[in-house]
Design a protein around this nucleic acid. Structure first.
Lengths: 230, 230
DNA sequence: CGTGCCATTGAGTCAATTCAACTTAAGTGG
DNA sequence: CCACTTAAGTTGAATTGACTCAATGGCACG
């Protein structure tokens, strides 16, 4: 069980960081947001904060986590470029969102989204799909945490990360999170994550050129480790 | 890691078991469903089945689970009387639903719900709230599986079950699921669940008059075990 | 060229699992 | 109603996977 301090400096207030209008043609929500920047390790919102904004990642990555009162941490999700987060909530955020590295976000005011959700079918569908996707992801995550071994968890993690990858080369995975983050996502310790990485490396399944890059040299083998048949 | 056979007999077809109209005043969806019965251990729907119906539990209990290819099982949720399930899906169910005991359900045809969701704001809110609740529950479940000890998991489980309890006496918990089901929900083995129950019993926190009943003799202590402060 | 953070590796420990009885409860048929 | 059968639950002993603690290595940044 891990317990570790999270830097608790807060980023400058949202209003102060809003820089301009977003111009994203794809989404029905596109033109409604304002751009915001957060530096590495800064808290975007904390569990229990009033849910005033929802966000979409433009660049960088965000960790969404829950903390136990004694400091044990469970990371629920990593939001990568293109992902929405903080959209699913009632009056209070149920998760803490922190910048893994320097991030650029589009912020949507809650009231606006609610209103649009009522009026516009496309927006409604988009938010609904997002919610469904998050639930689906959380349920798959449950299987990993509840029933997979340490090696399977680490392999699963990189299979999923590879699938979400926006690199030209699908086998080159950008790893914006630290080993500790991975451990807290997978319900392991940092050392165990590390050993499993070494294991995958020595079986020629992956290569680790540096701490923020994983090269999958044998994707089939990695999948096999992640999802053993029998 | 558990592997165990699940009785794979299927219940009689839905059409054959539909018995009449439901009369539930509370919900906006109330009058749209048809009643269905399923016997203990029968599959209501399986992972990958086309999602034709959604359900609400009237009596009995349902387990919602995912299975790995080698038979390891993770139970995602238990649906108790009053709970909806199977409402969140795309074209295919992402979970398997099985009757824990003899259950009575209201079935809602998918197309109907979709249509109503567009037309009726109240229905939309109801389904949306349901989805949000499921996501919230799954995320809390992640913390339990990722970061809690065996004893904490079992204590958490009964704290949650007590909160959902419809008994007059909140400290008397009806336990419709087997020890194996609890183990598969908590990511433990049946033996570990059993030992933790014995431990809670010998610390005078709970009493176990029979396998389907738990008496919480010290709720404060049970909560303390489930959520240690420091 | 230090200083500090993060990652890696090793050794020993412990919690939870596996394996193997054994007990209890719940039918089922004579 | 009781012997028989089967499923579910409990307990003990041995094993193991993941953790803790501790030391070392590597890189980035001032």
């Amino acid at each position: 069980m891990s317990a570790h301090a999270i830097p608790s400096q807060y980023s400058p207030s949202l209003a102060a960081t809003i820089a301009g209008r977003a111009t994203q043609p794809r989404s029905a929500l596109a033109s409604l947001g304002a751009i915001a920047h957060f530096n590495r390790n800064h808290t975007i919102f904390a569990e229990g904060d009033p849910a005033e904004y929802s966000y979409k990642v433009l660049t960088g990555a965000v960790r969404l986590s829950k903390m136990m009162s004694d400091g044990r941490r469970q990371i629920v999700e990593f939001a990568l470029p293109g992902d929405f987060f903080g959209i699913n909530w009632l009056d209070e955020h149920a998760l803490t969102a922190e910048a893994l590295n320097d991030v650029t976000l589009i912020c949507y005011a809650r009231g606006r989204i609610d209103r649009l959700c009522d009026e516009n079918r496309a927006v409604r569908e988009e938010i609904f799909d997002n919610l469904r996707h998050d639930l689906w992801a959380a349920q798959n995550h449950l299987v990993i945490l509840g029933r997979q071994s340490a090696l399977e968890r680490v392999a699963s993690f990189f299979v999923h990360l590879a699938a979400r990858n926006r690199m030209n080369d699908k086998s080159k995975i950008d790893v914006p999170m630290t080993r500790q983050d991975i451990a807290d996502y997978l319900g392991l310790t940092i050392e165990t994550v590390c050993r499993m990485l070494t294991k995958l490396k020595s079986s020629a399944t992956i290569d680790i050129p540096n701490r923020h890059t994983i090269l999958v040299s044998n994707m089939a083998a990695l999948r096999r480790v992640a999802q053993p048949d029998e």
